[in-house]
Amino acid sequence: MAYSIQQLADLAGISSRTLRYYDQIGLLVADRNPANGYREYTSDAVNRLQLIRYFQAFGFSLQAIQALLAQSPADQRQALADQRAQLAAKRDHLTTLLNTLDRTLAAQRGGPQMTDSEKFAAFKRDQITTNDREYGDESRQRYGATTFSASQQRYASLTESDYQAMQATEQRLFTQLKQVATTGNLDSPAAKAAYQAHRDWLCFTWNNCSLAAHRGLAQLYRDDDRFAAYYTDRVGLPNAAKTLVAIINHYTQ
């Protein structure tokens, strides 16, 4: 079946002006009716528009979508599968949060009480999912899949007291790191305290934080802008991650 531009616009829930723009930039090229020159869209165009709408919903730019649609069908399927996995992870996370919230509300109304471990289980699972999504590939390549998996399992099995201690240790790191980032003195007590706090924080989830592994993590901090953004946000200074890298390298020699 061939659709006119208005018919396809109504079907897809977008404007005919948008379809004209897609035609102009080559994202969704229309056929031309030989009798009147009007735009027409075949079933292949409908399928392509569905993919465009999917990728838009996933946050891809039109330029990125155009590049994706130029790839092989197998690559396109993989891109959709990757997005599905992310959506499923978000769904599972929201389901877990809703279940935990329902149990919390029930407990506050006098219903069954949650254990301390159960109160924080959802947050730990969320952090594990986030770590895997954002850093899993790099960590597996750098440290091996077994090491990364073991670290995730150790985090998941933290007791409530361990979890609180880990959070407190990271806060101690931020406090000392802010002082060193301000002074730049790597030989100061604050620098030594920041280094030790970082090692202590890692040891909550690492079986063996060797000096070489610690230096390798510093290199990852240096090369990945996501770590810079993380420490900038927590410490409040733009050179926080750079300072932490310098501290680790200084004390692991």
Score class of each variant (00 low, 15 high):
residue 187 D to H: 13
residue 245 V to G: 04
residue 149 S to T: 15
residue 181 A to L: 05
residue 54 Y to E: 10
residue 150 A to T: 15
residue 169 T to Y: 03
residue 164 Q to S: 02
residue 201 W to H: 02
residue 253 Q to M: 06
residue 229 A to N: 14
residue 151 S to I: 11
residue 141 Q to M: 08
residue 66 Q to G: 12
residue 49 L to H: 09
residue 117 S to R: 06
residue 192 K to D: 01
residue 238 P to C: 02
residue 247 I to Y: 02
residue 177 L to R: 00
residue 72 S to D: 05
residue 184 G to H: 00
residue 57 A to H: 11
residue 96 T to W: 09
residue 204 F to S: 01
residue 127 Q to S: 02
residue 199 R to Y: 11
residue 146 T to L: 15
residue 124 K to D: 01
residue 186 L to V: 07
residue 42 T to N: 15
residue 73 P to W: 00
residue 82 D to E: 09
residue 45 A to T: 08
residue 177 L to T: 03
residue 253 Q to C: 06
residue 222 R to M: 03
residue 200 D to F: 07
residue 141 Q to K: 12
residue 220 L to T: 06
residue 247 I to E: 02
residue 23 D to S: 02
residue 195 Y to R: 04
residue 119 K to E: 07
residue 156 A to I: 09
residue 71 Q to F: 06
residue 162 D to N: 04
residue 194 A to P: 01
residue 54 Y to P: 04
residue 152 Q to C: 11
residue 240 A to T: 00
residue 137 D to V: 08
residue 8 L to W: 05
residue 223 D to N: 13
residue 163 Y to E: 05
residue 201 W to Y: 04
residue 170 E to S: 06
residue 159 T to D: 02
residue 89 A to P: 08
residue 146 T to E: 14
residue 127 Q to F: 01
residue 26 G to W: 02
residue 176 Q to R: 12
residue 105 L to I: 12
residue 220 L to F: 01
residue 136 G to Q: 00
residue 87 L to W: 08
residue 6 Q to D: 09
residue 227 F to P: 01
residue 156 A to Q: 05
residue 23 D to C: 03
residue 111 G to P: 15
residue 41 Y to T: 00
residue 127 Q to P: 02
residue 112 P to G: 01
residue 158 L to C: 11
residue 11 L to Y: 12
residue 149 S to Q: 12
residue 138 E to P: 09
residue 19 L to S: 03
residue 111 G to V: 14
residue 27 L to V: 14
residue 3 Y to A: 11
residue 48 R to T: 09
residue 66 Q to R: 05
residue 23 D to F: 03
residue 130 T to L: 10
residue 206 W to N: 07
residue 150 A to S: 10
residue 90 K to Q: 14
residue 65 I to D: 11
residue 219 Q to F: 03
residue 102 D to Q: 13
residue 153 Q to I: 08
residue 101 L to S: 12
residue 149 S to V: 14
